[in-house]
């Protein structure tokens, strides 16, 4: 069933990805255009934001029918909620961020995991999956990611001309 979806609407999917991604990029540019400084920090921030935009556009285009896209959407939503809360009380921001980073560091280098677990960490929402569905989601995720990379490549090529 995944095969059918992938082979059939590669183009349609590509276009959907591109449309969303471009609209998000434009939105970002509108908000960011006044302070178009090119310091390294700024570029990094912006790239982070673009990365998130890429993932979110992918997940939105796929919709909630896939586990990985659901996981991404959920993460984005919770992140947005988190950020809005942070904006309200900006004092707690830095401390909490440090905590989050620490947690991530703890999880990632714990090293010699089995391959399935490594894959689970890579595929969003994969932690709660059994092997079967994990592989299925991985297949879909890979195809989507490849499409997204192609889209971004085209956009980047277009811009850098």
């Amino acid at each position: 069933m995944a095969t059918k979806g992938v082979t059939l609407n590669t183009n349609a999917r590509k276009i959907r990805f591109a449309r969303r991604f471009i609209s998000i990029l434009l939105k970002m540019r509108k908000t960011r255009s006044p302070c178009s400084s090119s310091s390294i920090e700024d570029v990094r921030k912006r790239s982070q934001r673009i990365k998130i935009a890429a993932y979110s556009s992918m997940a939105h285009a796929v919709g909630p029918r896939r586990a990985w896209s659901r996981a991404v959407l959920f993460k984005l939503r919770s992140r947005a909620r988190h950020q809005s809360m942070m904006k309200r009380r900006s004092f707690g921001l830095q401390k909490k961020r440090v905590v989050v980073v620490k947690n991530n560091n703890d999880i990632i280098p714990s090293g010699q995991l089995s391959q399935a677990d490594r894959l689970r960490q890579l595929v969003p929402g994969g932690k709660a999956m059994d092997m079967c569905s994990l592989l299925e989601e991985t297949a879909d995720y890979i195809s989507c990611l490849a499409t997204q990379v192609k889209v971004m490549q085209t956009i980047a090529d277009h811009f850098s001309k």
């Binding site: 990029l25 540019r29 960011r32 178009s36 400084s37 090119s38 570029v43 990094r44 912006r46 790239s47 982070q48 934001r49 673009i50 990365k51 935009a53 890429a54 993932y55 990611l145 997204q148 990379v149 971004m152 490549q153 956009i155 980047a156 811009f159 850098s160």
Partner: peptide, 13 residues
């Protein structure tokens, strides 16, 4: 994806 987003960010302004 990360690399391309960086590229786009650099191209952006």
């Amino acid at each position: 994806v990360e690399f391309l987003s960086m590229k786009l960010a650099a191209v952006n302004p």
